[in-house]
Design a protein around this nucleic acid. Structure first.
Length: 727
DNA sequence: GCCACCACCGACATC
DNA sequence: CGGTGGTGGC
């Protein structure tokens, strides 16, 4: 390697902050200040939950820019694109517009930018398709139908499973036989077929110009290895690398950090080993312990002072995490002085329906007492855990947005539209062809396959109808329409919105036929999709952006209707990472759900679930309710007793207070039974004035919310009802 | 031979 | 509410 001459940077040797526009000392505590204003070189910041990690990174960005680093040469790698956007724009507010030009995004998005510029170096076209997990599954299905990997085995893995196996090989850098032995022992006997399939999958993506999420990382490293000039150029533009959520990086990402920092050596990673919750996608929290070994002279800083939660909530969090293995010792202490802070409560409900009613009613009461809906969140282990609650919320007209559920681009009808756009973008995309073709009446798997072969291999121009194509009269007229539509939208001068509209015009009759039972419900999504495309200048950007930054389906439902009242948040714990709420409900705290039954199979699985629970607990600022149903119903099994989560049993009552739900019996109203807590514990802490305002005060002045409360929920505000509560 | 339709089973978290 | 597997019909 060439000799390096390091020029001293513009921030200079002095750590003087006196002449800067931002008051770093005044705005930050001492630990935060040290992290934000440290000099160059590798730095590891261990930051507990709620300790101002984000704030510190924002001030760090501002500090770097203010002391002379060009914003374009600062790279901020975050876990979601949303996080990057928020942080750069907050830094921009703090200083001046300049921080907006900081390069920020996920590893995947950053690598995508590099690969778009240099793909040909490693044998990919520049317009390669980005496969999301579902697309990757489709490709694997196509392969499976072609090849003879399963040898008639009865229990060959599902495409989802196949994809996660192949993914683990890449992003953990572990051979397939080891992955099988560790996670899928039941499929170890199929090793030969699986390994063959995995290699075919890799080759297929390359020959068809496709990259899945792992490829974006892996191929970037391949590119750097293939052409050191590219590495130097990219790393040369990374004067300072900042990495958020470092505990959730995988082996490839850790290596990428090294490469990005290989020219300037300035890298600051921030993370919390206690919050590592992405092992399933290859994250290895040991990266955070290995960091000081990978980078010589690493400076290790800690943030321990919590600004988010009350001390009683932190007591529970500390109690929880004490049971986990970890090495960076830290105990969170609160900086918030809240007299009479409510203890976290554990709330058993008779069944799921009662649990949902409890959560819904409590949310409304808190809203009455002044906690807006969007300051409250319901968290759960997996997306389907909230179905029952969603029904209840809909019944009561409580607006909510759900994170971690179905994505817009996962809805079948949106995938249909996307397939057409993908074919236009990359005519080699066999999986997209497959989907688009099979929508045509008369074309099934076999016909589609021969048409795809023709389109991707033999045809000079697959969008022009020629006589040597294997067409049959059964579907010819519809196929001509398809090819005509695709040909027209490939016109480079056609604006993206018109392309999307043109595809939808073609698709609409198919859509109404395919989803004849419920297409009116799906129809608005198509309009949203058109609207979304207006924000993008090219089809290519639009498609990769949708893959890397999927949009929550429920986030679209609520616009307009509830403008004056931002909605309640429902979220998987994973999607709630980095967020905070006045009140948090953790529902379905059950053995089998949290910890998940799948986690129990694997070594270290329960610890990961414990960290997940810890993340959920530490989202709460003031109120925390952990509830579970005591009975459940399952088909063929009938009603059975559940076991409460191991994470909440045996917690002392002065740390986690039991609350009993009681159906109101006197003056009972037909279909709206009411709740109240009446255990001694509940009454003991019980006469806070918070909810005692008996006259329901309306939030906002919207007639919408007022009338809703009158008609639908006013009975919930009956003072009788409020009296029995432990608040 | 191939496609369309109907009955079933099973369901984790995400860039 | 998805994928999948069986069967009848063209």
């Amino acid at each position: 390697m060439a000799r390096r001459i390091v020029l001293s940077s513009d921030d200079g040797p002095s750590r003087s902050v006196e002449n800067l526009t931002i008051d770093y000392r005044g705005d930050l505590n001492e630990q935060q200040f040290d992290a934000a204003t440290t000099g160059s070189g590798p730095t590891l910041v261990i930051a507990g939950a709620g300790t101002g990690k984000t704030r510190t990174l924002i001030y760090r960005m501002a500090y770097l820019v203010e002391t002379g680093t060009k914003p374009e040469s600062v790279v901020l790698l975050t876990f979601t694109r949303r996080a990057a956007r928020e942080m750069t724009s907050r830094a921009a507010d703090l200083l001046d517009g300049r921080c907006q030009r900081v390069q920020g995004g996920t590893f995947h998005a950053f690598c995508l930018g590099v690969l778009r510029r240099h793909a040909p170096t490693i044998g990919f076209p520049r317009n390669f398709t980005v496969l999301d997990a579902a697309d990757a599954g489709d490709v694997i299905s196509v392969l499976r139908a072609d090849g003879n990997y399963d040898q008639g085995e009865e229990r060959f893995p599902q495409k989802r499973t196949l994809y996660s196996m192949f993914s683990a090989v890449i992003n953990r850098q572990e051979p397939l036989d080891e992955v099988l032995a560790r996670r899928y022992p039941q499929f170890s006997p199929l090793y030969d077929g699986l390994e063959q399939m995995r290699q075919d999958y890799q080759a297929y993506k390359k020959s068809h110009g496709m990259m899945d999420f792992d490829d974006l990382l892996y191929r970037t490293l391949e590119l750097f290895a293939a052409d050191d000039g590219v590495r130097r150029e990219v790393a040369g533009r990374c004067r300072h690398v900042l990495v958020d959520e470092y505990q959730d990086t995988n082996a490839l990402q850790a290596e990428l950090v090294k490469q990005f920092a290989s020219v300037h050596g300035n890298v600051m990673v921030v993370g919390d080993d206690a919050q590592s919750i992405y092992r399933f996608r290859g994250a290895d929290f040991r990266n955070i312990f290995a960091f000081p070994e990978e980078f010589d002279d690493t400076q290790v800083l800690k943030l321990e002072q919590n600004y988010r939660s009350t001390q009683v909530i932190l007591d529970l969090a500390n109690h929880v995490i004490d049971n986990a293995d970890r090495s960076y010792e830290k105990t969170l202490f609160s900086h918030r002085d809240v007299p009479d802070a409510e203890l976290p409560a554990v709330v058993p409900a008779a069944d799921g329906q009662m649990e949902s009613r409890f959560v819904a009613q409590m949310i409304l009461r808190l809203r009455e007492s002044g906690v807006p809906l969007h300051e409250q969140a319901v968290l759960f282990r997996s997306s389907h855990n909230s179905y029952e609650l969603e029904t209840e919320l809909n019944k009561r007209n409580i607006p909510f947005v759900k994170y971690g559920g179905m994505k817009l681009s996962e809805a079948a009808h949106i995938k249909d539209v996307l397939a057409h756009l993908k074919v236009a973008e990359n005519p080699q995309d066999a999986a997209a062809w497959n989907r688009a073709l099979q929508l045509i009446h008369g074309i099934g798997p076999k016909t589609a396959k021969s048409l795809i072969e023709w389109a991707t291999n033999e045809a000079d121009d697959p969008f022009v109808h020629t006589d040597n194509a294997p067409f049959s009269n059964r579907y010819i007229s519809q196929l001509k329409k398809l090819l005509g539509t695709l040909r027209s939208i490939r016109d480079p001068d056609m604006p993206l919105v018109e392309q999307v509209e043109s595809v939808i015009d073609y698709y609409r009759p198919i859509f109404e036929d395919e989803y004849y039972e419920d297409y009116p419900k799906r129809e608005p999504d198509l309009d949203h999709f058109i609207g979304l495309s207006e924000n993008y200048s090219s089809r290519r950007d639009f498609l990769s952006s949708l893959a890397l930054d999927p949009i929550e389906l429920t986030a679209l439902d609520n616009d307009g209707e509830h403008e004056d009242e931002p909605p309640l948040v429902l979220s998987t714990i994973h999607s709630a990472k980095g967020l905070e709420f006045h009140t948090v409900f953790i529902i379905r705290a059950l053995e089998g759900d949290l910890p998940s039954r799948y986690a129990l199979r694997e070594k270290g699985g329960v610890d990961e679930e414990l960290r997940l629970f810890y993340v959920a607990v530490t989202r709460a600022e003031d109120n925390l309710f952990i509830s579970y149903p005591m009975t459940q119903y399952r088909r063929y099994q009938g009603e059975y007793m559940t076991d409460p989560s191991r994470f909440i049993v045996d917690v002392p009552e002065d740390t986690l207070e039991p609350v009993q739900l009681v159906e109101e019996t006197e003056a009972q109203e037909d279909d709206q039974p009411l709740l109240g807590g009446d255990t001694p514990a509940a009454l003991g802490s019980g006469d806070s004035e918070q909810t005692s305002a008996s006259a329901p005060k309306q939030l906002g002045d919207g007639s919408d919310s007022a009338s809703r409360a009158d008609t639908e929920t006013s009975r919930e505000y009956d003072p009788r009802d409020v009296d029995g509560l432990p608040f």
